[in-house]
């Protein structure tokens, strides 16, 4: 792959009017998709900077991305130790203030361990690391991270993980389903959710979940790896570009965004019993 100076070929065709969106990509010791995320966001035309795991200043950012990798070696459990880093304390405050937080793969695992999203990850049911393209059905197209998708749209984005087998207790799971917090589900090419289309045993084929406020989302697939036709898919752009558009929309109408709560009108805003996530203080129930 060429590492040309200046704008990459085709870059001018990528972006959206949301060029002003400001992203931060967190770098933990052991992150290994940070550069990919940075690259994809930069080529989409957005402003990006790295955020070191010891930093806690996120004031200038619209959206914080927790990239894939093996933060702190994934020792004990994926994300278990990363959760206590200074940057994660800051990400917790950022999320509670309504900032957009996107966790990709290991970043999703960190958000689960931090209690910013409900549930937990088990080892893949086949006990193998899986690295391949999957199909994903957009279950909720009105979140900040899917607003450019159509409801039911089928995306093709790669996964690469060993622990992507999403688990949540029955009460949490039904609450997630009821409130539209299940954002993406593994499916086949036609959008059918079947046992065969589930790569890792994830409960309900869940590939992405959001918090009750919908400003925090985690997904196992890697949108940053699906941003260039030459690499096999451009569907990942929809996720990143959605976040950028939402960021700019919120900046134009900050009060509206703050008061809006869940963008899905059917999911009543306000205090929900859905455990953990979003409004809970750090260290409170996951």
């Amino acid at each position: 792959m060429s590492r040309a100076e200046g704008p990459a070929p085709g870059r001018e065709g990528w972006g959206t009017p949301s060029a002003a969106a400001r992203f931060g990509v967190v770098v933990f010791p052991g992150s290994n998709c940070d550069a990919d995320c940075f690259w994809a966001l930069e080529h989409l035309g957005y402003r990006v900077r790295y955020v070191w795991h010891q930093d806690s200043d996120l004031e200038d950012l619209d959206c914080v991305v927790l990239p894939g990798g093996f933060a702190y070696g994934d020792h004990l459990r994926a994300g278990a130790i990363a959760r206590f880093s200074p940057v994660m304390q800051a990400v917790g405050r950022f999320a509670r203030d309504g900032g957009l937080v996107l966790g990709i793969c290991n970043g999703f695992q960190v958000l689960l361990e931090a209690g910013l999203l409900p549930g937990a990850m088990l080892a893949n049911s086949g006990l193998r690391f899986i690295c391949r393209y999957v199909f994903l059905r957009v279950e909720n197209a009105s979140t900040p991270f899917t607003r450019l998708c159509r409801p039911g749209q089928v995306l093709r984005i790669p996964i690469a993980h060993y622990q992507g087998n999403y688990y949540a207790g029955p009460a949490t799971l039904s609450e997630l389903e009821r409130r539209g917090q299940v954002v993406l589900r593994y499916c086949d090419e036609e959008g059918r959710v079947t046992p065969e289309s589930n790569p890792n045993g994830s409960l309900g084929g869940i590939a992405a979940v959001a918090n009750p406020g919908f400003n925090v989302m985690g997904l196992m697939p890697h949108p940053e790896r699906a941003c260039l036709a030459e690499l096999g898919s451009t569907d990942g752009r929809l996720i990143l570009m959605s976040a950028a558009e939402e960021a700019v929309r919120r900046r134009r109408a900050p009060q509206a965004a703050a008061a809006a709560g869940p963008p899905d009108a059917s999911a009543g805003a306000g205090a929900g019993p859905a455990g953990a996530a979003g409004t809970a203080p750090p260290g409170a129930g996951r």
Binding site: I81, L112, E113, P118, A120, L122, Y167, G169, G285, R286
Partner: peptide, 9 residues
């Protein structure tokens, strides 16, 4: 409770 086990599972 805080680190060694994940109470979710």
């Amino acid at each position: 409770s805080r680190l060694l086990a994940n109470p979710v599972l």
